[in-house]
């Protein structure tokens, strides 16, 4: 369980806000050197006791040469609301990088992969796409949300990631194709040419994709979102049913996840 993890004060360098979505660039050189796509950081959003616990955030991008990392989040509750009030120049206490990320080593240059992000779930996939680009992997991103305002990273993806194809999907049809991202994905019929699928988003979306790719026989990796008490493996609260040695065990998402292959995840039903 020895691991390289840092507890740092990270200064906010830049902040961008689109409605309920926030993007912070932070100065955290130690973390930027160690981090892998799919890993996360625990952020203390208040020095006071409300909220008390740190909150987990996937790393959205990392630039070790500049010592920068980025987190992208949606304001959903007390913790993210408090975090959204910070400004450039202020510092945050971060612990990271934590958890097990997406696996890239199985891929070779020229392979084609699909990344599917739902809403704020795009965050770890952005970082993943950065690294896939360096490895000369051909990347197709599906980015879905309820409406256009849920896809604020569209421009940044186009400018920075140089992916082969970016497919946008909105439920109200205000941007890209109309419908759930899973429906759009199904219509494309692209599975036979795909090496691997990387997913992060709402449970229902991930569950549908897991079933889809099972039929096609394409391996997939899913980043699970759970309530986390500590992120360090000491509170035992962030467990889910994961298949280990052919039986379902309660597994700590912060330690052995958040990314798991689809076939070991027990999906929550609606």
């Amino acid at each position: 369980m020895e691991r390289e993890v840092c507890l740092v004060q990270a200064k906010i360098l830049e902040k961008y806000k689109w409605g309920q979505y926030i993007l912070f660039y932070l100065f955290a050189p130690e973390i930027s050197k160690l981090a892998k796509p799919g890993q996360f950081v625990m952020i203390r959003v208040s020095e006071q006791f409300i909220p008390l616990l740190r909150r987990p955030f996937s790393l959205m991008s990392v630039d070790p040469s500049e010592g920068r990392i980025a987190i992208f989040f949606q304001i959903v509750g007390r913790g993210t609301s408090r975090l959204s009030q910070y400004s450039p120049g202020e510092s945050l206490s971060l612990i990271g990088p934590l958890g097990q990320g997406y696996s890239l080593s199985v891929l070779k240059p020229g392979d084609k992969v699909i990344l599917v992000g739902g809403g704020r779930g795009i965050a770890p996939l952005f970082f993943l796409a950065q690294q896939l680009k360096e490895k000369k992997i051909r990347v197709m991103i599906f980015y879905g949300g309820k409406s256009a305002q849920d896809l604020p990273l569209k421009s940044l993806i186009e400018e920075e990631l140089g992916v082969e194809e970016l497919v946008l999907a909105t439920e109200d049809g205000s941007l890209g194709e109309k419908g759930l991202v899973t429906e759009v994905l199904e219509r494309k019929e692209i599975w036979p040419r795909i090496e691997r699928v990387y997913v992060c988003g709402p449970e229902a979306m991930m569950r549908k994709i897991a079933r889809m790719i099972e039929v096609w026989g394409v391996p997939g990796e899913f980043s699970l979102e759970t309530y986390m008490g500590c992120g360090l493996g000491i509170c035992w609260s962030c467990v889910r049913r994961i298949k280990k040695a052919n039986s379902w065990s309660w597994v700590k998402i912060c330690e052995e996840g958040p990314v798991f292959p689809g076939e070991v995840i027990k999906w929550e039903e609606d």
Binding site: F49, I50, P51, L52, L53, T226, Y227, G229, C235, W236, S237, C238, V239, R240, S249, W250
Partner: peptide
């Protein structure tokens, strides 16, 4: 031991409520 099913922990005002179940 496996412990309790989740949710096992929830934050409350200046504290937390847990039922981890001693895994």
């Amino acid at each position: 031991r496996e412990g309790n099913p989740p949710p096992r922990l929830v934050e409350v005002t200046a504290g937390l409520l847990n039922a981890i179940g001693l895994p």
